[in-house]
Design a protein around this nucleic acid. Structure first.
Length: 421
RNA sequence: GUGGGAUUAGUUCAGCUGGUUAGAGCGCUAGUUUGUGGCACUAGAAAUCAUGGGUUCGAAUCCCAUAUCCCACCCCA
């Protein structure tokens, strides 16, 4: 029987990893510049954490989690996202007594049992950021600007920032009632999903894909018009901050994030060409989350970015950069004596941090050169009896064909500083 | 969970209405007379035609089931 990668997983091949590494490096750099430090959390957690943190009624918890019992009878879940684990760690390690705000970023895999399609996998990668202790809105704007700067650094353009405020539990509760009263008389004209949502989660009816174009939905009262004074002030201040930075955004009253913990600020960075999985990054404020997971009342804000979607978009925009290889020089051997010399020479270069290759396949002279050419190695050096006798090596530049004569003892100096980017 | 399309060398695909040894491009290996590569030319390796049944004298081709992949709904990163 043929064994294949499990459904929803995929290999990230050597031809792709350089781009992943570049993205991770750029993301870390941006975060560091804002005072964020990396946290690494477990791949699996107590199932209760996600039920309490992400929310029992969400689709993610109800039908998408990889949950199993371990040999000790504990209910374990492969993390479906990163925020809950970071919050758990924040509480468990007493980070509330650290100087606030406590800011962390992460680079993780996450797991969701979903039917897959473009930009959606069962094992996927997220870059994320969480900041605890500040009520904002200045930090809201900072968090958003980490994404903006990261995208700039990756050469991504035309990503639309959409923001909204979904208020605090108080204004949302009042609004939910209003919404139910508004829709109830018209419910029979709406889709089956919406009929279900009416009592359970009327907020979602607003961004229904089926009924979304209907006038009933378009004219529905909007949460953003019914915020309490404090939430309204917060949202206005966030806009002022973004305007001050010069980050473009559109206000999208229909953004309703699917995880229960969000309050007030919610935002998405949306691609204009990745199709329906266009949300590259989504996040928001979660002022009640730490408390609901068992910690002290602590405001927080964060986001997660889908790395697969990020790279999909990079590719679509042709912004993906060709990685530079580290191997500087290929040694071609003309005799057995030359091979011994090359073995030693390669070792010496590598000890000094210079990348090099030599034949490992028993190839003939000409085939060795062919390999060096195809492998795109920038320099080639042929070692034969002449070189062994004279100690003078000819280094050929494969791009322009020019040759430079170098003493065997001067090889390291010749390539020094050449290999770094 | 719902719906549509697909599955043939490593890879991208061809193979018409069933007919004998299943093809090509790219990639890979070797060579084109052992002191200079990419190109070109020649040769070669590589496929239980996704799996299991069925129809038939005969199935990559027709039928059924299963699996996997892609796309959309839903959900979300």
């Amino acid at each position: 029987m043929k064994i294949t990668a499990p459904k929803g997983t995929r290999d990230i091949l050597p031809s792709e990893t350089p781009l992943w590494q570049l993205a991770a490096k750029n993301f870390a750099e941006v975060c560091h510049n804002f005072g964020y430090e990396e946290i690494r959390i477990p791949t699996f957690e107590d199932t209760n954490l996600f039920q309490r943190g992400v929310g029992d009624t969400t689709d993610v918890v109800q039908k998408e989690m990889y949950t199993f019992e371990d040999k000790g009878g504990r209910s374990i879940t492969l993390r479906p996202e990163g925020t809950a684990g970071v919050v758990r760690s924040y509480i468990e390690n007493g980070m509330s007594s650290l100087p606030a705000p406590v800011r962390m970023y992460y680079d993780i895999t996450a797991f969701r049992y979903e039917k897959m399609q473009k930009g959606r996998y069962r094992e996927f990668h997220q870059f994320g950021v969480e900041a605890f202790g500040s009520k904002g809105p200045e930090i809201d704007a900072e968090v958003i600007s980490t994404v903006d700067i990261f995208f700039k650094k990756m050469g991504l353009k035309n990503i639309e920032l959409r923001i909204n405020s979904i208020g605090c539990p108080n204004c949302r509760k009042a609004y939910n009632e209003q919404l139910k009263d508004y829709f109830r008389p018209h419910i029979s004209t709406m889709c089956a999903d919406c009929q279900n949502r009416l009592e359970r989660n009327p907020l979602r009816m607003i961004d229904c894909k089926v009924d979304g174009e209907k006038d009933i939905v378009k004219n529905a009262p909007r949460l953003i018009d019914h915020l309490c004074d404090e939430c309204k002030e917060h949202f206005e201040a966030l806009k002022t901050q973004l305007d001050a930075i010069g980050i473009n955004y559109t206000i999208d009253p229909n953004i309703v994030r699917g995880l229960d913990y969000y309050t007030r600020t919610v935002f998405e960075f949306v691609s204009k060409n990745v199709g329906t999985q266009g949300t590259i990054c989504g996040g928001g404020r979660y002022d009640g989350l730490v408390e609901s997971v068992g910690g002290p009342a602590t405001p927080g804000i964060g986001y997660a970015m889908g790395v697969e979607r990020l790279l999909l978009e990079l590719e679509a925009q042709g912004a993906a950069v060709a990685p530079k290889k580290n191997v500087q020089v290929y040694f071609v051997a003309m005799s057995d004596n030359a091979k011994d010399f090359i073995t030693k020479t390669c070792y010496d270069l590598r000890v000094n941090g210079i990348g090099c290759e030599r034949d490992l396949m028993g190839r003939a002279f000409r085939a060795q050169m062919k390999y060096a050419g195809k492998a795109n190695i920038p320099y080639m050096c042929v070692i034969g009896d002449d070189e062994l006798a004279s100690g003078k090596l000819k280094i050929k530049n494969m791009t322009d064909g020019t040759e430079t004569e170098v003493e065997a003892s001067g090889l390291v100096a010749f390539f020094e500083g050449n290999g770094e980017e």
